[in-house]
Design a protein around this nucleic acid. Structure first.
Lengths: 153, 153
DNA sequence: TCAATAATTGGAATTATTCTAAATAAGGCC
DNA sequence: GGCCTTATTTAGAATAATTCCAATTATTGA
């Protein structure tokens, strides 16, 4: 990963790799180079890609990777808490390696998704009796500045 | 619609029908019996059905309705603001005719979705510059009481 | 190094949705 | 009420997204 355009230096990368291996192991997954490359692909462009986007990006570094493996890797990453799965519109699921507290602004016209870091308020909502909360997903739908502008004309 | 199990009497039904026709017209849609039956199916069981669920339910009253029509009707209802489209997990889109301010508690084990009415607080979040907000979607993922109990064993 | 088993692979299968072109039905107008 | 225009419906084909499968390969622990 010393390719042009890679936003990490070697030391950072090795560290990330170690952390990834650890996380995978904790959830009972093995460390494989496919999983590393898939995770890399996610970290390099933070644009909420679909599984197919990730497949195509990973293929550049690893031409023999298969579709099924990308799905498997993504599932593993989601399972061990390194990646969030986002389902904002009908169609392909999107993946987000930003694990900070944030919500998604989704432009229903062009499909762009913006991450917005959220204030750490605790919105005390009354859960259904006995419901065990795992995580929240807050999505704001509408039009991005660009699409809103175009529509006025 | 005087069938057994129909939770509305004739007067209420006629009123709903009138309101539906009006709503459709406002958005430039025609009133069709397919749209009425699809809307009825949604109102009769408030369980966030998929398009296919709605198709099967509507088919009981209207055996010749087609799959494509159900999709068309649902799209029309969503467009004119009578139905919300919910995308909580990978898989089929779900439909919700509850237009009150509420959020969704989603059991990731069994897929059940609970509506929880929300306090009318305005969470002032910083939108991306120029973003034109249309609506919010708040989802809480986790395990319902039943599934949480089963998992402990 | 070896054995056990988890992961990967390519392709087939499945599921969810959209598209298409012909037939039908709604709504406005006379 | 009948006619015209045009939206809607229909069945089935097409597409998109994801999962399944059985054989091969790779990882991990002993």
């Amino acid at each position: 990963m010393t390719k042009l355009g890679c936003p990490m230096n070697l030391a950072e990368h090795t560290e990330l790799e170690r952390a990834l291996g650890e996380r995978l192991a904790t959830s009972g997954f093995r460390f494989t180079s496919q999983r590393r490359h898939v995770y890399d692909a996610l970290l390099q462009t933070l644009d909420h890609p679909t599984a197919d986007d990730v497949f195509m990006r990973t293929k550049r570094q690893m031409p023999d990777i298969s579709h099924a493996t990308v799905y498997n890797c993504l599932a593993a990453l989601v399972h061990c808490g390194l990646v969030r799965q986002v389902q904002l519109q009908r169609g392909a699921t999107r993946y987000c390696p930003n694990m900070e507290r944030h919500c998604h602004y989704c432009c229903d016209e062009c499909g762009t998704i913006f991450d917005v870091t959220m204030p750490a308020e605790t919105p005390t909502m009354p859960s259904p009796k006995g419901f065990q909360v795992d995580h929240y997903e807050i999505a704001v739908h509408g039009l991005c500045a660009n699409c809103a502008g175009l529509r006025k004309k």
